[in-house]
Design a binder for these strands. Sequence first.
DNA 1: AATTAGACCAACCGCAGGCGG
DNA 2: GCCGCCTGCGGTTGGTCTAAT
Length: 367
Amino acid sequence: MARSGGGMEGSGGLKKGPWTQAEDKLLRDHVRRHGEGNWNAVRRETRLQRCGKSCRLRWANHLRPNLRKCPFSPEEERQILLLHGLIGNKWARISKHLSGRTDNEIKNYWNTRFKRRQRAGLPPYPPDVERQIKLLRAQNVNPFADADADAAHANASAGLPAPPLLYDMQVFHHLGGSQQPSFHQDGSAAAFGDIVSSRLPPLPTARTQAELHSNQFDTSISGGLVDQSMLIGDEHLLRPNPSMVKVSSMPALSYREPDGSRMLPAHGAGSDGDVSSLGQCPPGQDLHRGATWDFTFAAVKPAKRRTASEVGFSDMFAVAPPGDWFGGGSTAPSPGPSSAVTDEEFNLEMQQFMSMLPLSDEHGWNA
DNA sequence: AATTAGACCAACCGCAGGCGG
DNA sequence: GCCGCCTGCGGTTGGTCTAAT
């Protein structure tokens, strides 16, 4: 797949064209020994006759671990369309929100798709995606804006301290003791995962949490931030001040009846249709009204500290490796910018947070 | 079977920004 | 402030694959 034929030499004796297995091995070994970065050192320290740029690209697009080479799923395709509609040709930023996908891959996908639709005289986005994009724009919701600043502002107005929220939050299916994420199967799923994750409210304090059942999450403490952002995309549910979180992209939810008596599962998704179609909602009754959604947060240790705006889709849908996450959320003290997070530090902060939560074992939280 | 067009994909190029000297 | 180096990003190119003719 080279542009200029295999083995072509560029200036300075540097090789161009497709990479061989031997070259890949040299690069892999080098990264294993020295880590990523300092790509120009690769040529100095190995027999690899490739420029640093080429090494970086090869590593990023083909050799680095956790790359997914399978075709895009419908969910991923939809995410790409939506994100492109919101931020344009920012392939690197889009790719950060699709776990295991490279910017090049996404760019290729878009270009191919765009050309095809253009030839067919079709608009770049399907009508439903177009609607979602317009809705987001109309709401002035930019999932890539610096959510830290937004959250700080929202909290200041609500008389709350600025949220640290520097850990990625995942929502896990917690029914039946399962702590694996379960995802929507329909194409509309996950479209707003970024907004959810990057605009999560400040996590509950011990006081506010103590007033709630189990692991419920009182959205009133968000100063309205969650209300707006989380309800986006579910037009019929937009309310000025909902009493519970209704998250269109939740993998799976359960909810508690208004009187707090029963937990009911919302199998597979957090939408009205998903729940009522299972016959768990009495006909004609809005089961959400007055109810409180229960859901599970897991904080996944990031490679480095990130601002909320850097947390995205992929974080919502990546499956945390065993032992690398905790149920609950993080109210970790605000760290310095972009410092590394050690396992010890992360675990300690998670344990501190967990100890604040009067969580029941109803869903195997403390198992 | 040969040809062609479109799709897909890997890799290169130029540019911009960050950073240290 | 300037310069050089490094890195990352987005645009583009061109080879390969595949289905249609």
